[in-house]
Nucleic acid binder design. Structure first.
Length: 270
DNA sequence: AAAGACACCTGTCCGC
DNA sequence: TGCGGACAGGTGTCTT
């Protein structure tokens, strides 16, 4: 599923298609998601969408006084299509729009979620306690260093820990550690201040480069218009087990860290 | 408090 | 061709 760049690309694709549109109805076809579609989602009907934004890997869709919070899980996908678009397997819900189109959520693995919190959306369960956004000024080397100092888990897990920094998932964790020359299994507390400087700058570069390229499509992910994310062609280490390291040529290694496949070069990363 | 295991699902791919 | 097993972009919960 989508990591930060894929969610950001989805937001940017949705924004011009949804902003200013009235939601005339909400059709829930299959509410069964990891976080089931709430009954009050139909409260959105009649409201005009005023903004589409993102916090971590959550999409925030504000309509009138309400904000729907959408998570794509591993395989969730949002598209905006004509109202006569034929249904596909795993189409879960539609927001019907006043221009003859609808926004449709499809999710084969059903790991996604949908919330319509009462009151301040940032106070609702999934958004509470999230760490810093990596593309904001608050994400500094000093901040990262201070958070890594107190942990002994592998640095890869700290980068994927939403309490520290949000939006970095399994693909980008391997990519940024490779680009920073840091072994994914290194204890977090042994990462130096200089390495944190490198990490912060590489994380910004990689996420922004991916957003510019429409995100990463390995299997399911697609942009709102259905096109693939071209950053897949720019991955340097993720999924490259046995291939020559793009820097030194030695074979890319694969190891399980935190129950997730992890890719690294044993020569370039220490 | 932190880390690890596991659960939630379906689809796809690979080896036998 | 069929079948079993491994694996897939996330995250919440339970156990150590």
């Amino acid at each position: 599923m989508p990591e930060l760049p894929e969610v950001e690309v989805t937001c940017r694709g949705l924004r011009p298609l949804l902003t200013g549109r009235r939601v005339t109805d909400v059709v829930v076809r299959n509410p069964s998601l990891r976080v089931p579609v709430p009954g009050n989602i139909s409260d959105l009907a009649g409201e005009v969408i005023t903004s589409v934004s993102r916090r971590a890997k959550y999409i925030l869709l504000t309509a009138g006084p309400k904000t729907a919070v959408i998570h794509l899980g591993m395989t969730g996908h949002l598209s905006v299509v004509d109202q006569n678009e034929p249904l596909k397997k795993h189409d879960h819900y539609d927001f019907i729009l006043d221009d003859g189109k609808l926004m449709r959520y499809n999710d084969p693995r059903r790991f996604g979620g949908l919330w319509l919190p009462e009151g301040d959306p940032f106070s609702c369960a999934p958004l509470l306690g999230l760490g810093v956004e990596p593309l904001t000024d608050g994400f500094t080397a000093e901040y990262l260093y201070s958070r890594l100092q107190t942990r002994n888990c592998p640095v890869k897990l700290s980068l994927m820990n939403n309490v520290i920094v949000v939006g970095i998932g399994n693909i980008y964790a391997s990519e940024v550690l490779f680009a920073s020359g840091i072994h994914p299994g290194r204890p977090s507390s042994e990462v130096t201040m200089n390495e944190c400087r490198k990490l912060v700058s590489v994380i910004r570069e990689k996420l922004e480069e991916s957003i510019r390229n429409g995100g990463t499509t390995i299997r399911n992910y697609a942009q709102v218009d259905g096109s693939r994310g071209e950053f897949a062609d720019r991955l340097r280490i993720y999924g490259k087990k046995g291939c020559p390291c793009p820097v030194c040529g030695s074979p890319v290694q694969s190891v399980i860290v935190g129950q997730r496949s992890t890719f690294y070069c044993s020569v370039c990363q220490k």
